[in-house]
């Protein structure tokens, strides 16, 4: 157990979306910057860097997290999932992603990465989540384009399809 010096870069190893990867980071490097500029996983977006807008929401060891409020060195050894993990394979979309497209639940798409991570986590843990619960979880995100209602519809639609066992829309 050694102190990582502020002025040096250190190797950070994570399991990112199923793959073991590593990069270099000084202790103060935000996890957002590490993911985006070190690991080149640019799907996670940065909207406020103070934990309110939700665009940077990811999963760390299975739990939701604002990646702007975490530092890369904190996640050394952790399992990280980002929006890039959600599609079943390249060129296809998940049930939730398809529902977003169908319901016009995104416009500019900038906040979408974080919203998808929150809703994917919710529907995984609570398949029966209803509108109120979805709204409550969605309230951890700011979206300026959609007015939110299409996102709620998409989530309800995805939840229903997932309950029916529809694997990828």
């Amino acid at each position: 157990m050694t102190t990582l010096a502020a002025t040096e870069t250190h190797t950070v190893r994570v399991r990112l979306n199923g793959r073991a990867v590593e990069g270099r980071a000084t202790p103060r490097m935000l996890l957002t910057d590490f993911l985006r500029h070190e690991l080149h996983a640019t799907g996670t977006h940065v909207g406020c860097e103070h934990g309110v807008c939700g665009a940077c929401t990811i999963r760390i060891d299975g739990a939701l997290a604002r990646s702007c409020l975490a530092y890369a060195v904190q996640v050394d050894g952790a399992t990280i999932e980002t929006v890039e993990s959600l599609a079943p394979e390249r060129g296809r979309l998940s049930v939730l992603q398809t529902a977003f497209q169908r319901h016009h639940a995104l416009q500019c798409g900038f906040c979408t990465a974080g919203i998808l991570m929150s809703l994917d986590t919710l529907l995984g843990a609570e398949p029966d989540a209803g509108e109120d619960r979805i709204r409550e979880v969605l309230a951890g995100h700011l979206c300026r384009c959609t007015g939110y209602q299409p996102i709620i519809r998409a989530a309800l639609d995805a939840a229903a399809r997932l309950r029916e066992g529809d694997a990828d829309a």
């Binding site: 157990m1 990582l4 002025t7 000084t26 202790p27 103060r28 910057d33 530092y71 060195v73």
Partner: peptide, 21 residues
């Protein structure tokens, strides 16, 4: 909006955290 530099210590047990503190 990036933090000023800091050292970082991941404490494995409470006594390590307390002595660093």
């Amino acid at each position: 909006m990036k933090p000023a530099p800091f050292d970082y210590l991941r404490a494995d047990d409470i006594s390590a955290a307390l002595s660093a503190l």
